[in-house]
Design a protein around this nucleic acid. Structure first.
Lengths: 239, 239
DNA sequence: CGTTCTCTTGACCAGCATCAAAATTTGTGG
DNA sequence: CCACAAATTTTGATGCTGGTCAAGAGAACG
């Protein structure tokens, strides 16, 4: 990571962080925020820029504060699997392994908050609410991973795309923005590598959903969910 | 769960537990084993018997001590996804959710060690090595889930089956039994529901691996890995 | 305003699913 | 221990979903 992308911030950063309400940092009480502030570095990433690479020593943990990140692995012959998309409030670094097992890159202009792992661990040992919050995150992530495995193992293309649209922040009332409006900052190819499909199938499937009136394309990167209940049924295989 | 399947054990159970060396209990020092013993109940399960069902309140955590367990979810139309197979030493209960998101059933004659969740949490708060061990488990499980997602999203049938054979305990030198001998207590249909295939494809693929001399069928439920390196290449897509 | 990248759509194809039946194993009762 | 019934596995024939290959239509960017 280029040195010019990370800088120590001025005081009071965490107190004004837009992502705090829905991040693990919410577990740190306001009175102790200076402890976080002392450890936090802000990293600014341009579209496509790498945050870490598979195999790199995992010296930091991260919190996404704005924009979006993709994490992925490649097979030897170039097949790609995108493990996840991360948005404001999402935490990276639950895996205690010494080396990153995934690469992480910004999809669009993105800022993340970075902490040295050793310092963060020390803070965790002291502020046990933070540790509890991370354990809860780990549980959530495990549950999400199981839903994704079910999707990949047993759902059809249209069920996968429907599930994907509903999983993105946009339906989530905690997050900013109008409900039902889903932003898709990633390419069709990235959706495909996340859903175990090809980009052509993703494109055709989105067209099918539009034709069926379940969603409406607002712009290339924005979809409006017109029939949330029908989409949910599809996603859950209750069709 | 029938009451007659769970009984408080006699003294010294944990000290003689065959699964302890490769379970989270290993993090509890011998001197404190009586604390575990005081909380542990042994549950004996017949083949096919349920340990817990999706939706049940998750009042306990479990450690498999012998035999094997399958965890799974169903879609509305009956499609099944097996989330995982659990063997001696494996822990169930990392997910902090109030209700089980999966069903768990014994595949064969199985024993598990059961703890009330609240009591276990209390022990965790006190014995932080145990908490650390569980966090490490959560990390491992997350890493395993990511490997499985890569498998389901991007690997071919033969790569999936090769990966599966190598993931089963049998190659693991920590576990008992001759290395390279893989026991398959689950049916072809269960393997299929775990690997995102059909039972016919699993059967055909095993036949292919046998024909290629990569594995040898010792019995219906046992395979010997004849060419571990070639199988590993296949599994990793380095073919 | 042209170059490039992404998305959409079409034609064709392949890997795996489905349907079907035979072979093998397992379980049960006599 | 054997014979029969049930379940599982294997193998074969055929089909379909989604992949591959290809071309054209928008967007994005310099």
């Amino acid at each position: 990571m280029p040195a010019d992308c990370a800088q120590r911030r001025g005081g009071g950063g965490c107190a004004h962080c837009a992502a705090r309400p829905f991040s693990v940092c919410a577990s740190v009480p306001d009175a102790d925020l200076h402890r976080l502030d002392a450890l936090a570095e802000t990293v600014t990433l341009a579209p496509g820029q790498a945050l870490f690479r598979e195999g790199d020593p995992a010296t930091h943990v991260f919190n996404v504060t704005s924009g979006s990140v993709r994490t992925y692995r490649l097979l030897a012959d170039g097949r790609r699997h995108i493990a996840g998309f991360l948005f404001a409030g999402d935490f990276i670094g639950l895996d205690p392994a010494e080396a990153h097992s995934l690469s992480g890159e910004a999809i669009e202009a993105t800022t993340v908050c970075r902490f040295r792992k050793v310092a963060y661990r020390a803070l965790m040992a002291e502020r046990r609410e933070l540790e509890a919050a991370l354990l809860a995150r780990a549980g959530d992530e495990l549950a999400a991973a199981r839903r994704q495995m079910l999707l990949l193992a047993r759902k059809t293309a249209i069920e996968r795309v429907a599930s994907f649209l509903l999983d993105l922040p946009g339906a989530d009332p905690l997050r900013p923005g109008p409900a039902g409006l889903v932003r898709l900052p990633m390419t069709r190819s990235e959706m495909a590598d996340y859903l175990g499909l090809t980009l052509e199938t993703v494109s055709r499937t989105l067209t099918r959903l539009k034709r069926g009136g379940l969603i409406r394309q607002v712009s290339l990167t924005e979809m409006r969910v017109e029939k949330p209940d029908a989409l949910r049924m599809l996603a859950d295989g209750d069709a």
